[in-house]
Computed example of a mutant assay.
Amino acid sequence: MNLRCKIRCVATLAFAFAFCLSEASAQLPTAQLGDVVPRDVREIYEKGLDFLAKSQSESGEWGDGSYTGPGVTGMAVMTFLASGEDPNYGIYSGNIRRGLRSIVNSQDPNSGILGGMSGHASMYNHGFAMLALAEAYGVVNERLLNSGNSAMKRSLGEALELAVRGAVTSQKKNSYGGWRYGADARDADTSVSGAVMVGLLAARNAGIKVPDEAIDRGVAYFKSMTSDSGQVAYAGLGGFSHSTPRISIGCLVYAVSRRKDMPEFKATLTALTNQMDVSGGVYQSYGNYYQAQALFQGDVEVWEKWNGQLIRQMKNSQNEDGSFSGNYGTTVETSLSLLAMALNFRFLPIYER
């Protein structure tokens, strides 16, 4: 039995157990893969999922103001997938299906860029949406996705393959080997490039063919942007100011691309372990989302200590309606905040070590 089938079976059993406990309300599983999930995590997560379920649009999208598009929808979809609820028959399966349909139907059939048909053709949107498709691929039942009058323009696998081609085509136009906001951009930055790289790596892990050259060029770009002390620059040359989000992105890219033997991985991990604060920063939720994954990939014992701080901070900052507030709007803030805690569940394949 392959890993994705195992994940589906575990998720189905978890939902069946929860359903037996209560038919009236959502019950998140209490243990995943042998590890007990802290009660605070379950309570915070359940409230957050309830908020996201209620805030989804009729057509399946999520978003607030300027923070909208298939990438935002992808973040929300991953939040549901990460909790362990059965994505096909669980209480949030309808939310997941509507979200995935909206992502696939937003794709430009010519360029492969997700959001190209809905006016949200940012490579940020493309990267996060591609990641969501990769995490759903092989776990979500395609027959259910195309039930009734809600058929998708293409299957998840077809959409994911097309999205990979779109990302690779964009990279080939870029002399840096990375990505910027537009698919035709000639410059690059480590934030957008991180979103696309993680999406490509997740697609590869899901069994989609991703050219080795694309991964190698992406890693080489991050290497060129990483200092000996583990600082990761944003764009251009130099500019190695301390940024926990950027250091986390670089560390995660090295880890998931299986380059933990590189000195740049070790340098970024060291820089992260020397910066354990989760209490502030303009890009707090964004930084927490990446730092959680980077620390887990790099040093589980350090992640466990950091995770304890994160849970306390999330418990104190969650709004009564289950949302989180911040610069990105409640949808993005809530999704990123919950995903930063999702490693406690260990369901998303991208969270594997």
Rank of each mutant, 00 (worst) to 15 (best):
D64S: 14
N125I: 10
S257T: 05
V196N: 02
M225V: 10
S317M: 12
Y45N: 02
S118W: 02
D228M: 04
L272M: 08
D228L: 09
L131E: 11
G230C: 07
I96G: 06
V232D: 12
F265C: 06
L49G: 07
G281M: 12
F51C: 11
L310S: 02
S317I: 10
M262C: 11
A255G: 06
G329C: 07
E333K: 09
G177R: 08
K305I: 14
S25I: 14
D321F: 12
M75D: 11
R8A: 15
Q291W: 00
E161Q: 13
G280Q: 09
R42W: 01
K266C: 00
S325C: 12
G230K: 10
G99L: 08
P29V: 13
F345M: 08
R246S: 01
G166V: 02
S257G: 07
Y286W: 12
L114H: 06
S22N: 15
C9I: 08
V139F: 04
G308F: 00
V256D: 03
S279P: 00
L252E: 08
Q291A: 08
Q231C: 11
M341H: 02
N205W: 00
S248I: 03
L81M: 10
S22I: 03
A132K: 04
I44L: 14
L145P: 05
L343S: 12
S106P: 08
G84P: 02
K54S: 15
W306D: 01
Y286C: 06
M314H: 08
V300G: 00
T169A: 15
K172N: 12
E304R: 15
R101F: 05
K315P: 01
Y181C: 04
I44K: 06
V72A: 10
I350W: 01
Y286I: 07
Y221M: 05
I91L: 14
D212S: 15
N105Q: 06
R204V: 00
L145R: 07
K266E: 11
A76K: 00
S55T: 15
D216S: 14
G115T: 03
S25W: 14
R258N: 13
P211N: 06
Q171I: 03
I208Y: 04
S337D: 03
N95Q: 15
A188T: 04
S118R: 05
G90K: 02
G74M: 04
A26P: 13
D212L: 09
E352H: 11
N88C: 08
A26L: 15
Y351R: 00
R97H: 13
A132D: 07
V77P: 06
S248Y: 09
A235S: 15
N95I: 10
G148I: 01
F324R: 02
W306V: 07
I215C: 09
Y328S: 08
A235H: 05
R42M: 02
W306L: 05
H126L: 09
A294S: 12
Q27G: 08
G207A: 09
E352Q: 13
A214M: 09
S147A: 15
D64K: 04
R186L: 13
E142I: 03
I247L: 04
N105R: 07
S337P: 01
L3G: 01
N205S: 14
